[in-house]
Every structure is written in structure tokens, then in C-alpha cells.
Simulated scan of single mutants.
Amino acid sequence: MQRNFEHRKVALGTCGRAYNTPCIHEHSCLRCSLLRPDPQQRGRLTEVRDHLLARIDEAHREGWLGEVDGLRISLAGAEHKLAQLGELTTRTATVHLGLPHFSHLVGRTVR
């Protein structure tokens, strides 16, 4: 049961919002910085991006300029999420931080 509270699963990945808090983006996860995309959803994100491009073209043809602006925001979010997935796949799993040293403290006395 506790596992349900650790991660909020959404269609495209995991939401970082605190449990039982409202979504200010009204579940428009592409625009939300708290969405951590699931690498298995790359194909779906690509489809969403392509669909947004087609909708932007349609909105231009129809003269729906307000719609174009909103769609561009969503498109930027989709492209950002795809870039995040790209970073996840190229990032190395282990980061060597080295060993701590205290040589800068040698020779000091406490008074």
C-alpha cells in the first residue's frame, strides 16, 4: 500500500507533486516541470509532439492565433520532455565523487 504514496503514476511517467495536492496544470503534464517521463513512453511522447505540430498547422490555417500560442507552449514542453529522456539514456549511472580529505584543516587548533 505504501508504494502507492511513493510515486504518482501518470500516463507519461511519474509526477513529483506531493501526495493529495491539486495539480495547478490541470493534468497538462507536458507543461509541468514535476513530470519525470518514463523512458518506455518515448514513442508516445513523439506521437504527441507530432500531433501538436499538425494541430499548430491547422490552427494557423484557420486563423486561431490564441490556440497557436497554447499549442506552442505544449509543444515546447513535449520537446523538453523528449530531451530529458535523451539525457537519461546518455547519463552514466555512477558518479564518482572521490574521497573526502581534510588537509585544509591540518594545523588548526581549537581555542
Rank of each mutant, 00 (worst) to 15 (best):
Q2R: 15
N4A: 14
N4D: 10
F5M: 15
F5A: 09
F5Y: 10
E6L: 07
K9Q: 12
K9R: 07
K9I: 11
V10Q: 02
V10D: 04
V10W: 00
G13T: 00
C15Y: 01
G16N: 06
R17I: 15
A18G: 08
A18I: 15
Y19C: 11
Y19T: 14
Y19K: 15
T21I: 09
P22A: 11
P22W: 07
C23D: 01
C23N: 00
I24M: 08
E26S: 04
H27M: 12
C29F: 10
L30I: 03
R31V: 13
C32I: 12
L34W: 05
R36A: 11
P37D: 02
P37A: 02
Q40A: 13
Q41M: 06
Q41G: 01
Q41Y: 00
R42P: 05
R42C: 01
R42M: 03
G43L: 01
R44N: 04
R44F: 08
L45D: 01
L45S: 01
L45H: 10
E47K: 11
E47C: 07
E47S: 09
V48Q: 00
D50G: 02
H51V: 04
L53I: 10
L53G: 06
A54R: 13
R55A: 04
D57Q: 07
E58S: 05
H60V: 14
H60G: 08
E62I: 08
E62D: 06
G63R: 03
W64C: 06
L65Q: 09
E67S: 15
D69R: 13
D69E: 12
G70M: 00
G70V: 01
L71E: 05
R72F: 02
R72D: 09
R72I: 04
G77H: 06
G77S: 01
G77M: 03
A78P: 04
E79F: 00
H80T: 14
K81F: 05
L82K: 01
A83N: 08
L85D: 03
L85S: 02
G86T: 08
L88M: 13
L88V: 09
T89R: 09
T90S: 13
R91W: 00
A93I: 06
A93T: 13
A93C: 09
H96G: 14
L99R: 11
F102G: 14
H104G: 14
L105K: 09
G107M: 01
G107S: 07
G107C: 05
R108V: 06
R108Y: 11
T109Q: 15
R111C: 07
